[in-house]
Simulated scan of single mutants.
Amino acid sequence: MILRLAIAGGLIAATVTIQAFFMSAGLRAFRQMEKDRPDFLSHYPTLVTVAWVIYLIIPILFDVCLWAAFYYLAQALPSFEDALYFSTVTFTTVGYGDIVLDRDWRQVATFEAINGWIIFGWATALMMAVIQRLYFRTDPQAMDDGDPKG
């Protein structure tokens, strides 16, 4: 059991790393766009919001696939398709219960659910940060000049 929980901890660390990488790259690109193309951001905030949400779904898909690969390779589930479905339902905390793990693996699945809960909270915070920048913009030049009114 300790080994399985250690593996779950490793999977959580891996998914946090994936999220952090995507967050850093995405925010860097957004800041660059704020600097180079502020007119685009102010004219197309809905398009940018949709692109940002889709972008944030990509690492979540990687996270779900990582957990699914674990279940399949550990032979906790009979097929990768079942593992992917189970992982998606668990990571999103939907938990239909139509596919369940054996008693030996159940505790690991609770860590995936906690992991998903944290990752979705993080992604939501990132979405809101970008939405606030898009819809409640201040002039970055004015902020650089020390003028808080922007």
Results as ranks from 00 to 15, higher is better:
residue 81 E to R: 05
residue 45 P to S: 07
residue 73 L to E: 10
residue 39 D to G: 12
residue 56 L to F: 13
residue 36 D to S: 13
residue 60 I to W: 08
residue 39 D to H: 13
residue 73 L to P: 05
residue 61 L to Q: 11
residue 41 L to I: 04
residue 60 I to F: 14
residue 82 D to S: 15
residue 77 L to F: 02
residue 61 L to E: 11
residue 67 W to C: 03
residue 60 I to Y: 09
residue 38 P to Y: 06
residue 82 D to H: 10
residue 41 L to N: 00
residue 59 P to W: 01
residue 80 F to G: 03
residue 40 F to K: 08
residue 46 T to S: 08
residue 39 D to E: 14
residue 82 D to L: 07
residue 80 F to I: 04
residue 76 A to D: 07
residue 66 L to S: 06
residue 48 V to F: 04
residue 46 T to V: 15
residue 83 A to E: 04
residue 79 S to K: 06
residue 34 E to F: 02
residue 65 C to K: 09
residue 40 F to Y: 12
residue 61 L to M: 15
residue 35 K to A: 11
residue 60 I to L: 10
residue 76 A to F: 02
residue 81 E to I: 06
residue 62 F to L: 15
residue 61 L to Y: 09
residue 41 L to Y: 01
residue 42 S to F: 07
residue 76 A to G: 08
residue 83 A to N: 09
residue 47 L to Y: 14
residue 61 L to T: 14
residue 65 C to S: 11
residue 42 S to G: 06
residue 34 E to C: 04
residue 78 P to D: 03
residue 40 F to D: 12
residue 63 D to F: 12
residue 45 P to F: 04
residue 37 R to M: 03
residue 65 C to D: 05
residue 78 P to T: 01
residue 43 H to N: 09
residue 63 D to A: 15
residue 43 H to S: 14
residue 51 A to T: 01
residue 49 T to C: 06
residue 55 Y to N: 02
residue 39 D to R: 15
residue 51 A to G: 13
residue 42 S to D: 05
residue 70 F to G: 11
residue 54 I to K: 01
residue 61 L to I: 14
residue 60 I to Q: 14
residue 35 K to G: 02
residue 57 I to N: 11
residue 44 Y to K: 02
residue 37 R to P: 03
residue 39 D to K: 08
residue 74 A to P: 03
residue 46 T to P: 04
residue 68 A to R: 11
residue 50 V to R: 05
residue 77 L to M: 11
residue 68 A to Y: 07
residue 36 D to T: 07
residue 48 V to W: 05
residue 47 L to S: 11
residue 56 L to K: 07
residue 75 Q to G: 09
residue 46 T to I: 13
residue 42 S to A: 13
residue 79 S to G: 07
residue 80 F to H: 01
residue 76 A to T: 08
residue 57 I to C: 13
residue 73 L to W: 14
residue 53 V to P: 01
residue 58 I to R: 04
residue 80 F to C: 00
residue 83 A to D: 10
residue 53 V to Y: 05
residue 55 Y to I: 00
residue 64 V to S: 03
residue 34 E to G: 05
residue 36 D to Q: 10
residue 44 Y to I: 02
residue 62 F to G: 08
residue 41 L to P: 03
